[in-house]
Amino acid sequence: MPSSADHRRVAVDRILCSGHGVCAQTLPASIALDEWGYPIIVEDHVDADAGALAVKLCPARALFLR
């Protein structure tokens, strides 16, 4: 599924990510955490608004949309 107006693909800058785990709270249906708290993207297509909010709330500024 390509990115459209209301759907975007969520991704993680793995170097910036320090495992706060906030993304798993803001996008619970898309992101799980491993045993150290680093995200596992289960489904990368997310609602554009929910994705934008998750990006805004990522403390490491590691989450991004494409």
Binding site: R14, I15, C17, Y38
Partner: peptide, 9 residues
């Protein structure tokens, strides 16, 4: 040692 899933995994 940059990415958590690699450095711990």
């Amino acid at each position: 040692g940059q990415c958590g899933p690699c450095m711990f995994g």
